[in-house]
Amino acid sequence: MPTFTMRIFRGDTARGEFRDYRVEAEEGMVVLDVIHRVQATQAPDLAVRWNCKAGKCGSCSAEVDGRPRLMCMTRMELFSEREPVTVAPIRAFPLIRDLVTDVSFNFEKAKTIPPLRLKPPEPDGTYRMMQEDIDRIQEFHKCIECFLCQDVCHVIRDHEENKRAFAGPRVFIKVASLEMHPLDTRDRTEFVRATASVGLCNITKCCTEVCPEGIHITDNAIIPLKERMADSFDPIVWLLRKFRGQTTQPA
């Protein structure tokens, strides 16, 4: 059985350091298994947040060898026994202890999103949506809220002061899923511009790169939102809408 050196961050905001643990890993083990083994045998108070261990709940986000990942979906076969494997907490958020951070920032931002406002139903009282109407937003609904995109986004990761204004990729895909919802009647472009500050995003795509669900956050959500915002000050679009008599209700 291969033996790895796990270099795990231990500590709190006052004092923290990387400590090495030697752990055996069996075939097919993931980083979270190895962390649990450390917990059960060497460091019972090692703090780690996890739930499903199957890549569905998005709890076990961490930075493995400097890259934001789900620990439960990162196989040990990726790493070499010869070098230590570094496991650090996600660094964009306040630390609670060891590998656990306080991610309430994301829940606070989520509350600001203007919710769905439905069209009136069909004459028979039901709602109809075609598969092609929802294919695009079903991709966004795959989000497991692991917040790795929020963690890796340099707008807030490297510039704490932007946390007040900037909502982050997770919020943008949620907004995009509402904006493109076939039954929704709300216009969120002003929210996207002013409250969520999409302008701070410079589309450098790290959110897409780290998304464990493979959601094309930048191409399919953020850029379309930027384009929808551009519509609002594009004179050609404005004229076309006037011509067709289209209106949307503001958020």
Partner: peptide
């Protein structure tokens, strides 16, 4: 018996 303190202590 649990090692460590009360801050996010999975052992506890």
């Amino acid at each position: 018996r649990v090692e460590g303190g009360r801050t996010y202590n999975p052992g506890w």
